[in-house]
Design a binder for these strands. Structure first.
Lengths: 299, 299
DNA sequence: CTTTATGTTGCATACGTGTGCAATAATATG
DNA sequence: CATATTATTGCACACGTATGCAACATAAAG
């Protein structure tokens, strides 16, 4: 060991991988690390894997096709497992991973076609809560700002929200589209408020859009929040708590989700068959100042 | 090729690396991907490298020691090159990379002890401009909010700012410390304004702190910006342009920096000796609404 | 047809490490 | 001291691909 030290020897991980069949590397497919939610998720995963002497290979997959390309690329590099936090998972890619014995888990996403272990917030239930909260707050003309239409999170949140409204005796929400981005939110807000029937509450599929909506209402249209219009989001990114926004939103429990994902991975890597591959984490309604409160709060 | 296709054959990149001596993988050492500036930098690098069929291995290095550990780890995985966007680069680590023939470049950081190719904004010059701008705006009691004291960017910005003030005939700034974080900025602002001699302008070492300062002044202390106090930052992250903040700041030209870094890397990988290993990119003053304008603007 | 040039194919070797077996050395047991 | 047991050491082989050379087939030139 001493001689090795003096010679500056360090084991050649590539050669080790070749013979051992494992690279001690995890593949991470991300749609948008610049979205603070995913930035923090990335940070969480990096932190954990590094502590366990695992490397992380990142792949950016903003569009649907990218996911498959990225997964294929990482398979060639023999990652031990993959975490996909982007939409567009195809069954071919999943099959490829299966064949190579590489576990895949979906993070904050889901697909119906394949049975892939998944960790996500209970989007439907949380959005239902949000609907109930807004209706109890006295709102009746309610809008939903979609993120990317095809994304599972968006669909689930829309579904839950619609169901929640229905439970409270309301019609489905007015819909707008904001692309999960700040700019998208701003423009959606503009369109909504310029329309013939402007809403008195706007629920956005994520926080970033909600911030865009807020800025548009308050600073461009001079609309008072929450007196004239309530605005809510989904994620609870740090900025939602900043005093300029003070956004009422659904908190995704990042840490819990990450821990759950890691647990799932560990089980899969250990070869244990996971009987319930889908972990649903409860979202939590975070009440701040951007939405009118019901006169009597539900317990 | 057809048979390979049918059999689902894909080349084994680990074996290729072993024999070819190159992994087609770039190592990326990051201090804080959740800071929007670095999140976008990460995104930019990922985009480029993926287009060129290169993988990216990420390492999170929030503290000084992490950098060396991370670099050592990535060396064992035979990355072809490394980009360090975190402080704490030691000369031992650099020597290790040299010995292994792995080029290293510093991104938005610098060290004086070793001569390492570097890409960064001209922090000194930009901060000098900011000093001049604020003084011309009629401010005389000016504060500087430090990020991490040891970081080179912070030191350069403080130095440039101080020099700029001196050129305009002013004393060095009042100093506070904000840790490069929103919370840090908030608390620094509180301390500054509660002090015996509250400033009438605050220049922050980065945007995130400036947003914290803004929120504290406007929403907690009820101070009007820029009428009572001007606030400026550094980076020009997207949020700086959001209407709630409308932050006057120094723009770091991310894209140019990334391109420059990639150019440098290409040259180093091609074995071309780079005679001028330090690329300085000009910062640009972005005038928005958070700082009083001089009555006569300099050209 | 022979010679030369060009293209194709097969095969041995190497990359640096893990694994298992054989050979040897060290230790314990009668 | 002989035998059985345990530790240590050395060595061949394997992982999947790249490289270079030899052997061979094909095409072009005289």
């Amino acid at each position: 060991m001493q001689v090795a030290q003096q010679l500056g020897y360090a084991p050649h991980q590539v050669a080790r991988s070749l013979i051992s069949g494992r690279s001690d590397t995890i593949g991470l497919v991300l749609a948008s690390p610049s979205n603070p939610f995913y930035g923090l998720v990335l940070e969480g995963f990096l932190q954990h894997f590094q502590r366990h002497n695992l490397r992380v290979m990142c792949y950016l997959a903003p569009t649907l096709d990218d996911v498959e390309i990225g997964m294929r690329a990482m398979l060639q590099y023999k990652v031990d497992a993959m975490i996909v936090a982007a939409s567009g998972l195809t069954s071919e890619a999943v099959t490829d991973c299966r064949r190579n014995g590489v576990p895949v888990i979906l993070f904050n996403r889901s697909i119906s076609s394949e049975s892939v272990p998944t960790v996500q917030t209970d989007n439907v239930r949380s959005s239902k809560m949000m609907a109930e909260f807004l209706v109890r707050g006295g709102h009746s003309s309610i809008a939903y700002v979609n993120g990317l239409e095809m994304s599972s999170t968006n669909r689930d949140r829309l579904r839950g929200f619609t169901e929640g409204l229905a439970q409270m005796g309301l019609e489905p929400p007015i819909q707008e589209y904001g692309d999960f981005s700040y700019e998208g939110g701003r423009e959606a807000a503009k369109r909504l408020m310029m329309s013939a029937t402007p809403p008195d509450a706007i629920f956005c599929a994520n926080d970033v859009m909600a911030l865009g909506v807020l800025d548009c209402l308050k600073n461009e249209l001079g609309i008072s929040v929450p007196d004239d219009v309530s605005v809510t989001g989904f994620d609870d990114i740090p900025m939602a708590g900043w005093s300029s926004f003070n956004l009422t939103t659904v908190r995704q429990r990042r840490t819990q989700m990450i821990v759950a994902a890691i647990d799932l991975l560990d089980q899969l890597l250990a070869g244990e068959v996971v009987e319930a591959p889908t972990v649903l984490i409860e979202g939590r309604l975070i009440l701040r100042g951007s939405a009118r409160l019901p006169s009597s709060l539900p317990s």
